Amino acid sequence: MFTLEIDGVAVAMTDADEAEAREIFDSEDFKADLAEFTTDGKPVWNGKSPFTIRPATEDEEDLFDDSLEADEDDEDEDGASVVFLVMVDQFDDEFDDEDE
């Protein structure tokens, strides 16, 4: 399992192997999502800070397992699961406007 850190904060993790984790976290779609998601009213990613991809800690692995038990629909098309470790509180206003 591998964790994505941004500015020293563990943001997301995956059960993919290292190469696949890098492919997922470095994808333009994933980066676009991170720039649109907010936590505490701020973007999860500012579009500039570098990513650190590292092996997950035991505590993170426990959180990952608990999260998958609660929601089994977080698999990407390759079968790897991705779980956010930060609370994503809302999407960018662009998504809110589409719902109206």
Score class of each variant (00 low, 15 high):
Phe37Tyr: 14
Glu58Ile: 04
Glu20Trp: 14
Asp65Phe: 02
Glu69Arg: 11
Asp74Tyr: 01
Ala19His: 13
Ala12Phe: 13
Leu68Val: 08
Glu18Thr: 02
Gly8Phe: 13
Ile24Arg: 12
Val9Tyr: 04
Asp33Met: 11
Gly79Pro: 08
Glu5Val: 05
Lys42Thr: 02
Phe91Lys: 06
Gly79Cys: 03
Phe84Cys: 04
Arg54Trp: 03
Arg22Thr: 06
Ala21Gln: 07
Leu4Asp: 10
Ser49Cys: 02
Asp62Asn: 12
Phe51Arg: 02
Glu58Cys: 00
Ser67Met: 13
Val83Gln: 07
Ser67Ala: 15
Ser81Asp: 08
Asp97Val: 12
Glu23Met: 03
Leu85His: 08
Thr14His: 05
Glu75Lys: 13
Lys48Gly: 09
Ala56Thr: 15
Pro43Ala: 05
Ala70Glu: 13
Gly79Ala: 02
Asp40Leu: 14
Gln90Asn: 09
Asp71Lys: 05
Glu18Arg: 15
Val86Pro: 06
Ala80Asn: 15
Asp93Trp: 04
Glu69Val: 07
Asp62Arg: 15
Glu98Val: 08
Leu68Ala: 01
Gly47Cys: 06
Leu85Pro: 08
Asp74Val: 12
Glu23Gln: 11
Asp92Met: 06
Glu28Asn: 05
Val83Asp: 03
Thr39Trp: 05
Val83Thr: 07
Asp89Asn: 13
Glu20Met: 14
Glu36Trp: 02
Phe64Arg: 05
Phe64Lys: 04
Gly79Trp: 05
Val11Leu: 09
Gly8Leu: 14
Ala35Gln: 08
Phe30Asp: 02
Glu75Ile: 04
Trp45Lys: 00
Met1Ser: 15
Asp17Cys: 10
Ser27Thr: 12
Phe91Ser: 10
Gly79Thr: 02
Asp78Gly: 03
Asp74Thr: 13
Thr14Met: 02
Arg54Lys: 14
Val82Trp: 02
Ala80Ser: 15
Ala16Gly: 14
Phe84Val: 04
Asp26Lys: 07
Thr57Phe: 01
Glu77Pro: 01
Pro43Tyr: 07
Met13His: 04
Asp66Cys: 06
Glu100Asn: 05
Leu63Val: 03
Val82Asn: 03
Gly79Met: 01
Ala21Pro: 11
Ala32Tyr: 07
Asp29His: 03
Asp73Val: 08
Asp65Thr: 14
Val9Phe: 07
Asp73His: 08
Asn46Phe: 03
Thr14Ser: 15
Ala10Ser: 15
Asp73Thr: 11
Ala70Thr: 07
Phe95Met: 15
Gly79Tyr: 02
Asp17Glu: 13
Glu36Ile: 01
Ala12Leu: 10
Phe2Val: 04
Met1Cys: 12
Ala21Leu: 06
Glu94His: 09
Met87Trp: 09
Asp73Cys: 05
Arg54Gly: 02
Glu58Asp: 15
Ala80Met: 00
Lys42Pro: 00
Glu94Val: 09
Pro55Glu: 09
Thr38Asn: 05
Gly8Ile: 11
Ala56Trp: 00
Asp29Phe: 07
Thr52Phe: 00
